[in-house]
Amino acid sequence: MTRIEGESAQAKGADGAQRAKRWLESTTRVNAQWVNPNPPAVAKLTFAWPHGGQNFSFDLGGTLKYGEYDGQEFFAESKNYAEPSDLPKHYSKFLAQCYVAYDKMPARADHFMWIAWSPHSITDWPKLTTADYVRAHVLKHHERVFGTDNEAMAAPLVNEDVVSAVASRLWLVVLSQKQETLVISKEHRSVIEAYETRRGE
């Protein structure tokens, strides 16, 4: 990838994160206060791979509001792709990242959201949030997660409780440009927020 291509991909990724933030917050149930690459957000969204000396970070995160999810935190990955392209590869890595994040900091890992502008892995779609699928893709990244280049040796090291926890916390969100426009207006959202503030008082 050339420098120009890299900069273009980075800009596209940043745009996708901002668009995901706007859509999530338009639901009135989300405060997506951490967005990469804003410096205050980086520390909140960055984790270290257990092996290999490298870090990874989610694209955005924050807290959910009201109802059964009130006060719970989420991490999200946004993929601003018009076509499936290499999304399956990215989703595989995302699952391994979720496993590491939950294993390291379960108190903050209440939800993991995959937000994309294209579906992928259609034939496997019903399986994408299952424990079996999570386990299989955590093992695909066995070197960075378990420190071994042998997948068979890594298999017994998988923490099944962490796998189940991650699977139960996964959200798959597929957006479109038109869908992004069909949301509550800022004016109406402010009415809801004012109501919730008064109710809390």
Rank of each mutant, 00 (worst) to 15 (best):
T130C: 06
R199D: 13
G52K: 00
K12M: 14
H51K: 08
S185L: 02
S92I: 01
W171L: 14
W171Y: 03
D70I: 00
A165S: 07
W125L: 10
Q33E: 08
S168E: 14
S92F: 04
Y133R: 11
D110R: 08
P88K: 00
L170E: 15
E5K: 04
G53L: 11
E68A: 04
K65L: 05
S176Y: 01
F75C: 10
T130H: 02
F56L: 15
L24R: 01
D124L: 11
L128K: 11
A17F: 07
E7F: 11
A11F: 04
L182P: 07
E187N: 05
R169H: 01
E160K: 09
V138H: 14
M153V: 00
P106V: 03
L95E: 08
A48K: 15
I4E: 15
T130L: 06
N31E: 12
T129R: 05
K186Y: 13
A20D: 01
I184F: 10
F75N: 01
S121L: 05
V134K: 06
A194W: 05
L182Y: 00
I115W: 02
V162N: 14
G53Y: 10
T129S: 09
S176T: 09
P119W: 00
P119D: 14
T181N: 09
K44G: 08
P39S: 00
K12H: 01
